[in-house]
Design a protein around this nucleic acid. Structure first.
Length: 581
DNA sequence: CTCATTGTAAACACTG
DNA sequence: ACAGTGTTTACAATGA
């Protein structure tokens, strides 16, 4: 999807998803920031050179045609300059957002005058290669028409022809993309669909569950008045606040934009599918998660604008990826599928992350039952959290935040969540200072996969054997998080140690909490492991290996500097969902 | 058919 | 007493 705007939908989803920064993320951010600083220096130098070059060229051309008395070249160069500047303006948006987000998180202090971002700083987000490319375009491609200074604030729809920077920059520039994607990490968001109410004496849209909901603030107050005090003091009208406000505006803008685009896409999809209805059936879907997921997504999206039967007791089961797909996707065909109790085929319960990420917007707004098991959803919620641990209430909040479907019938699904937490061994309860948090024992979770994945036992073996202990454990964690499309976590050097200790922590906890009599001893006992090279592959036997890790880890003290942002969701069972769609 | 998994409902215990 | 949390049991639906 070509997205001319600065933020891609995926990034927006990450924005929505990653609200809290873990210490590891902060570390990564700092490193990236340092790298960015370096870049900025280089870029400024580069830009200076380019400007000199431009001036030189200008002078030369002036001299050349001075006698001819022609002003054309001058105008031409001016137009080029203009175009160049406009491109830079575009880049400015990316860069500005990045900086603002940094500032928003307190990682960067921007001087008051800097928020305006003078031209010379526009290039800060660009790498030399890109600048060069841009320069080439500016200098080579002749500007055929006058560009009026349409530096409107949004400028998403640029009028530039061959000089469109956004399109080449997006796919071409991994660095820029990286920044942009990490932007999503910084940007907290507020989706205050349910807080439109008038400010009552003891409530404030920016105050929820004792936490200041100002982006990036998270200050905790037990008293509403102290919050008000804080709000007036800390978030007064200053540059920082306005900048943060601007970012928030951009977030909203982008969301609206994406909504419009998705609607358009949906329309196109539906028309397309209608047209295709008479055509021969598509080739059988491979047992590929992505494809099936995509299909389910399209099915969902197709159903989204249609008035969904709001019958929570009869779940609107999405299409089965393989067999039950009809060519024509209509509301009827979608929901005429016999109501099933199950969410979806549990074959697909494991890698829901991509789907969730890709269809987040949909699930957030459409009252459609997500096609995943409770266990998968709970796992996803926990893995998405910065500390890979959530309290029960935070899990609830995640459900209500991510899925419109779970904003009703709270008693039912909450019970199911608790039931699942207790029932499945893959969910480990960890005592904490604040109470108890739930973590995911990835090994246990993966253990259930073999039965789910139909077809390829080899694949199953692979998966299982890849879940050995020690280093591979953290690898499994990383894989699972890469699955979450959380780029920061895949930066191995940073994510690994923490995950390691976490895994260790979980294991320790398992040692204490779980009796190892759970093993049915059927598969892969240590003795006859299919991979003798590895240590025990036995996934189930107590994973108490020699402690190669450092000593006492404390899940508790792992810098809970980022309080549960989840609390700022106010979906209290029966409210805040009637405004959907 | 059996069996495993999942969802739902409900009872119960514990805790603050 | 009450709500939230956590465990457990029972049962139905589904699919392998």
């Amino acid at each position: 999807m070509m997205t001319p705007q600065v933020i891609t939908p995926q990034q927006m989803q990450q924005i929505l998803q990653q609200q809290v920064l873990s210490p590891q993320q902060l570390q990564v951010l700092l490193q990236q920031q340092q790298a960015l600083m370096l870049q900025q220096q280089q870029l400024q130098e580069f830009y200076k050179k380019q400007q000199e070059q431009l001036h030189l060229q200008l002078l030369q051309q002036q001299q050349q045609q001075q006698h001819a008395g022609s002003k054309q070249s001058k105008e031409q160069v001016s137009a080029q300059q203009l175009a160049f500047q406009q491109q830079l303006l575009q880049v400015q948006q990316v860069q500005q957002q990045h900086l603002l987000n940094l500032q928003r998180q307190g990682l960067l202090t921007i001087q008051p005058g800097q928020t305006g971002l003078p031209l010379h700083s526009l290039t800060q987000g660009m790498i030399p290669a890109e600048l060069q490319q841009l320069w080439k375009e500016v200098t080579n491609a002749h500007v055929k028409e006058e560009h009026n200074n349409n530096n409107n604030s949004s400028s998403n729809n640029n009028g530039h022809r061959g000089l469109d920077l956004s399109s080449p920059a997006t796919p071409k520039n991994p660095l820029l993309n990286q920044h942009a994607s990490t932007n999503g990490q910084y940007m907290s968001h507020k989706r205050e669909g349910s807080t439109l109410e008038e400010p009552s004496p003891n409530s404030h849209p920016l105050y929820g569950h004792g936490v200041c909901k100002w982006p990036g603030c998270e200050a905790v107050f037990d008293d509403f008045h102290s919050f008000l005090k804080h709000l007036n003091n800390e978030h007064a009208l200053d540059d920082r606040s306005t900048a943060q406000c601007r970012v928030q505006m951009q977030v909203v803008q982008q969301l609206e934009l994406q909504l419009a685009k998705d609607k358009e896409r949906l329309q196109a999809m539906m028309t397309h599918l209608h047209v295709k209805s008479t055509e021969p059936k598509a080739t059988p879907q491979p047992l590929n998660l992505v494809s099936s997921v995509t299909l389910s997504k399209s099915a969902h999206e197709a159903s989204s604008p249609l008035s969904l039967p709001q019958t929570p007791t009869t779940p609107t089961t999405p299409l089965t990826p393989l067999s039950q797909t009809h060519s024509v996707i209509t509301a009827n065909s979608l929901h005429s599928v016999a109501p099933r109790r199950r969410f979806f085929s549990e074959k697909y319960n494991m890698p829901i992350s991509p789907d969730i990420n890709q269809n987040k917007d949909f699930y957030m707004n459409a009252d459609v039952r997500p096609p995943f098991t409770y266990a998968s959803l709970i796992r996803q919620a926990i893995l998405e959290s910065p500390e890979k641990q959530l309290t029960l209430n935070e899990i609830y909040n995640w459900f209500t935040r991510m899925f419109a479907y779970f904003r009703r019938n709270a008693a039912t699904w909450k019970n199911a969540v608790r039931h699942n937490l207790s029932l499945h061994k893959c969910f480990v309860r960890v005592e904490n200072v604040k109470g108890a948090v739930w973590t995911v024992d990835e090994l246990e979770f993966q253990k259930r996969r073999p039965q789910k994945i139909s077809g390829s036992p080899a694949l199953v073996k692979n998966i299982q054997t890849s879940l050995g202990y020690g280093p591979t454990l953290s690898a499994a964690f990383q894989a699972s998080m890469a699955e979450n499309n959380i780029p920061l976590y895949t930066t191995a050097s940073i994510g690994s140690p923490t995950l390691h200790s976490l895994a260790h922590a979980i294991r320790e906890e398992m040692n204490g909490a779980m009796d190892h009599g759970n093993s049915n001893g059927s598969d892969s006992s240590p003795g006859r492991s299919p991979l003798p090279a590895m240590h025990h592959i036995s996934v189930k036997e107590e994973p108490l290996d020699p402690d190669d890790h450092e000593g006492p880890l404390s899940l508790v003290t792992t810098a809970n500097h980022s309080p549960d942002f989840d609390h700022h969701r106010d979906y209290d069972d029966d409210q805040g969902h009637d405004d959907m769609l």
